[in-house]
Design a protein around this nucleic acid. Structure first.
Lengths: 344, 344
DNA sequence: TTTAGCACTCCCGGTGCAAGAGTGCTAACA
DNA sequence: TGTTAGCACTCTTGCACCGGGAGTGCTAAA
């Protein structure tokens, strides 16, 4: 119950580090050697027994060593962890590869693979949210066969296009009129307010507006619908998880991969991380999602102009090298933010 | 060796069907009952011994029943298989969901998930190849921050866009000039010839052309480069493979999933299927790729205007229900082709 | 050519055993 | 009072062994 004294903390730290390193339950003899304290195994056993009472460690079976519980990990990452400073080469690798080039989806994909390569775990990056983005411009181009190409420019790096099926062919000039109209009225407005206005006007004044307006609005609305539903993420390096021995049974993996495919739950979890300022960590069952029971998630938000656009992170086994992963996730988020912010 | 007599064929068929059904090596007693012939187990054993000499079946160990070898499966699918006619509801499900709406990538994604849902295996669809596609139109739109949005219209259902970093800002009018120029010169030409011409002209006459042309061409070339390298595929339902007991060990799965991520090898294999007219099947090691040793691949090409644009198919364990899978793949390819072909 | 009979092989699950690792407890020690 | 040595105990792990079951291959008879 009382606060953990220094020795107990040190032992928990040593135990956790050792267990993270080689995945075997740690016994008192090993720990006594490991911790650097001049203590006999018997003494260590006494301390460990206390830690067990506090629910910080447990033994897989009667005569095995101890492994950290979720609470043990929590305490470890919150107060005991000494994060490694990043190696310069890792930072450089990240910086070199996160030069913005092309659209933002491509960038998120690189970020995700970089994360997974550097950490040897699964990397995940949510696509930028458009909620507070504003509409820069809309363009319509005629295609053949009663189709129209709609292009939605949200920012320099964020363009969405969508092919609309219409009830007749439109000419270039006519479409130009529509887009001019929309641009005049809505350019610079926030996407969701644009959409709300459009919907309202469509409903209320359908009769009063001329045919052109209606068509333009219906089109614009369809495109916006596409753009808004785009809550999504990019995952890379799932296969790395198949190397972790704690996840290495087919049923666990299956649940995990199904959740990746399903996306909904993972997205829900990632959305929770948008709030936090810096690195956030979910350990094992803390996430509240069963398929992540044996996993931890380390995330950090990325921003443009101080506004959080999304989060990136790493999914791996609970027993991951936090002291290495945390700074990597942190740095990646910073570098990605830097890449997204328009310089000069 | 002599031709297989009818009885041997019948037994091989029964054996394969039975093995596909429940995954256990089939013994002579079971087979004698199964085949419907009035034969004693001993007789069956004799026949089976011949099949084994021919390399069509093998036993996992001395005193187990027999399972088909790759050659056995080959013979089975080539000459013994009685394909099930598709259930009407499956066809309807496919047809309803493969209505074209939006761009072709979306369509391929639906096709892929449909395949995986209906077969309970992994579905794969290659994206349409652009090699013989022709350029319908190019458009450039100015963005801020020294960026230009290039849009490449290939067909009604195939649009590609790409954000170019340029060395200065361009105005709308100027860009319009460029695209007009390119459209006049290249609209309707095949993509790769457009590209070749561009490259050649760029090299040879760089000095003679005015600045505008050069810029326009460089831009167009960048976009085309993007468009051409786009040999890619969409995969769905990988997790289904985790249910197949023959693939259910982590190392096999890892190799497989790594190959899926890598894409190169799988693409190579899929490209080989472009040639064939109809359904094509690779069984186990026939594919030549080690990670597919325990897998079979059933593919069929999809076409527009009689030209093959790509292939779709199903990846599953060697022991899959061919008589059900083959017609599904076949039908899906037809329906997808129909959806892509401009009607009316 | 087909079949019955039979010895043989191999897998599989259960059991027993010994070694090893680690614990919890107790009693002695500083 | 905190630390340590000693010791009995528990539990895993690997190994060998055994018996039943399934299925084969061979031989000889129908």
């Amino acid at each position: 119950m009382s606060e953990l004294n220094e020795r107990a903390q040190l032992l928990l730290k040593a135990l956790t580090e050792r267990y993270i390193r080689d995945g075997q339950p740690v016994g008192s003899r090993t720990l006594a050697r490991e911790a650097g304290l001049k203590l006999s195994p018997a003494t260590v056993r006494n301390v460990i027994a206390d830690l067990e009472d506090l629910g910080l460690v447990r033994s897989p079976h009667t005569s095995a060593g101890r492994v950290p519980t979720v609470q043990g990990y929590r305490l470890f990452v919150d107060t005991l962890l000494s994060v490694k400073p990043l190696e310069q080469e890792t930072v450089e690798e990240l910086q070199e590869n996160l030069e913005i080039e092309g659209d933002s989806r491509g960038l998120m994909e690189t970020a995700s693979s970089l994360l997974s390569d550097v950490t040897r775990l699964a990397g995940v990056v949510t696509l930028p949210r458009h909620e507070h983005a504003s509409l820069q411009r809309v363009e319509f181009l005629p295609l053949s066969n009663r189709k129209v190409l709609a292009i939605l420019v949200i920012s320099d790096t964020e363009v969405q296009n969508c092919i609309l099926n219409t009830e007749r062919d439109y000419g270039a000039a006519e479409l130009q009129q529509y887009s001019n109209f929309l641009n005049e009225q809505f350019a610079g407005k926030e996407l969701h307010s644009v959409r709300a206005t459009l919907l309202a006007e469509l409903r209320e004044t359908r009769e009063h507006l001329n045919r052109m307006m209606t068509t333009a609005m219906t089109m614009a609305d369809k495109v916006l619908g596409e753009a808004e539903k785009g809550s999504d993420y990019v995952l890379a390096g799932q296969t790395n998880l198949m190397d972790c021995d704690e996840l290495c049974n087919v049923t666990t993996l299956r649940h995990l991969f199904e959740a990746f495919d399903e996306k909904r739950e993972i997205l829900g979890l990632l959305d929770q991380c948008v709030e936090s300022e810096g690195v956030q960590i979910f350990i094992g069952e803390e996430s509240g999602y069963q398929m992540l029971d044996e996993c931890s998630l380390v995330t950090a938000p990325y921003t443009v102009d101080g506004k959080v656009l999304g989060v990136l992170g790493v999914i791996g086994p609970t027993r991951m090298a936090y002291e290495r992963i945390i700074p990597i996730v942190d740095a990646t988020a910073r570098i990605l933010s830097a890449a997204l912010n328009p310089r000069d």
